[in-house]
Design a protein around this nucleic acid. Sequence first.
DNA 1: GTTCAAGATAGATGGTTGTCAATATGGACA
DNA 2: TGTCCATATTGACAACCATCTATCTTGAAC
Lengths: 110, 110
Amino acid sequence: MIGAVDDVKILQAIGEPTRLGIVRQLASGGEVCACDFTACCDVTQPTISHHLKVLREAGVISGERRGTWIYYRLEPRAAARVAALGHTLLAGAQRDPKPVGAKATLKRAG
Amino acid sequence: MIGAVDDVKILQAIGEPTRLGIVRQLASGGEVCACDFTACCDVTQPTISHHLKVLREAGVISGERRGTWIYYRLEPRAAARVAALGHTLLAGAQRDPKPVGAKATLKRAG
DNA sequence: GTTCAAGATAGATGGTTGTCAATATGGACA
DNA sequence: TGTCCATATTGACAACCATCTATCTTGAAC
């Protein structure tokens, strides 16, 4: 399946307290200056910069420089992948329980 | 916000190749015997057992013993949290770009 | 060009994590 | 009771990661 590796990267990226905080702030703010993350989260500026890089390289956010400041926003493509995965899991969780494991089925049959 | 910590745990849990594979298999299979994970993923049995424990402790899956085998399934609550987060991110990504950062706004004004 | 502030990079470090081999546990069945 | 099989636990180790301090780069304005 194409994109499976990217999904892991996305989940790894947002599966960290500071980075999930950044992403949530972006989701509610739409567009946020990098300088504001330093204020909100209890880590130093290089750490924020590192986390922004991780999120950027995972395709979760993108930044645009405007003068001295850099403004970040969420990447719709990554957001869509998380939403799709959530939908898949929810559908799978609500499905009727019917075991289909090949090995288990064979053993139960034999 | 209640649940933020749990979200990180859930994302950390499914943000690993083997574990995401397990979860995807559960989503499509509904209910899977632990013995079948050993076959699919290219790791040893203790490693699978370890990953199942991580997923269990994050509330992503639950297991039920039936005779010799243990059958795992997805936990609807965790699946719902992923779906909700995906929805939040998608909504935030599609929002009109309007910077709201307090610090940045102040600086641009002054 | 100089200065100042925003952001990125480098290097170091302590903690976490994925993996394995070896062993333990616990149900099923003879 | 004893054996077999599925699963869990233990202990060890290498790789990775989040964080820091210090320093570099870059754009703006004087």
